[in-house]
Simulated assay, not measured.
Amino acid sequence: MTTKPPAGSGEGKPEAPEKRLRADARRNRDKLLEVARAAFAEHGVDTSLEEIARRAGVGIGTLYRHFPTREHLVEVIYRREVEALCAAAGDLARDYPPDVALAEWMQRFVDYIATKRGLAGSLRILLTTNCDLFSDVSSMIMQALRSLVEAAVADGSIRDDVESSDVLLALSGIYSAPDTPDWRDRSRRLVSLLMDGLRWGAPKAEAKRKS
């Protein structure tokens, strides 16, 4: 569903590119994205835009200046979530041992899926109008996961018959799980089980068992 600005509001024209925003405008935009992401993840994409603006402490006209339609808001949130998820792969790889970095990233994938489920309705609309968005996203996520999996395999902390595409397929199954109140907690447990399976029989685990 595409939501347009109120008639006669004059708020339907997007602002200048993000890099040109004044500091206060950038703060408003970032706050709107933060509030909208949380609202969509919790209540779905049909959450009132007026309520999002209210929670962000701005007027509805400010929201429409930054995001002329609901789908525009959804696309920006989705891109940001993917970029944050992929950037986390490098940060975790720098700060943790390879298998721990992979485990932590997969737990973050649960949060990404939670946001994606909340945006599902508008993402289906975007799929018909912006196929490049989804091909770009798939490539970015696969590249991030592959770097973590390959590092853990090379380190001997996960089994060496693992392919990153298999891991992504297992993780993606979380998306289709029933949307129950305990969905997030259950998904985190499933990710932990998956990680246990990746470690089972790994060279480091076998060496430790035999020592």
Rank of each mutant, 00 (worst) to 15 (best):
K116Y: 02
E18T: 13
S165G: 06
H43Y: 15
D91V: 14
P6R: 10
Y96G: 00
F134H: 07
S147R: 13
G61A: 07
A39T: 13
E75M: 14
D132G: 05
M106P: 00
T180M: 12
A23R: 12
K4M: 12
D155T: 05
R55K: 15
E50Y: 12
R159E: 01
L73M: 12
L85R: 07
D99K: 04
Y96M: 08
V35G: 02
S138I: 06
L194I: 02
R199Y: 00
G8N: 04
P178I: 05
S9G: 02
V45G: 13
A151M: 04
L119R: 07
S192H: 07
R20L: 14
P181A: 10
P98F: 00
A89W: 06
D160M: 05
R199F: 00
S164Q: 02
V82M: 09
Y64H: 11
A207V: 02
D95C: 04
K210H: 07
C131S: 15
K19D: 13
D132T: 13
E11P: 00
L193N: 10
L127H: 15
D166P: 00
T62E: 08
D111A: 10
R20T: 12
I113D: 00
W183E: 03
P98T: 07
V100E: 14
Y112P: 03
P5L: 07
P203W: 00
R146Y: 00
S172K: 10
E50P: 00
E34P: 02
E75N: 12
D182W: 08
V35E: 05
K208R: 10
L127N: 08
W200I: 01
M1P: 14
L190P: 02
E15F: 03
K116C: 05
A56Y: 01
D95Y: 04
I174W: 03
S165F: 01
I52P: 08
T2C: 06
L32F: 08
L133E: 08
S48E: 14
A38R: 14
M140A: 15
D161Q: 10
V74F: 10
T115G: 14
D196S: 13
P14D: 04
T3D: 13
R22I: 01
D155Y: 05
E206L: 11
S9H: 02
E11M: 06
T69C: 08
I174N: 09
E206H: 00
R186C: 09
I125C: 11
L171H: 01
L85W: 08
L171W: 02
G201V: 02
S9R: 04
C86E: 06
E18I: 11
A41E: 12
E104T: 08
I174S: 09
A7N: 07
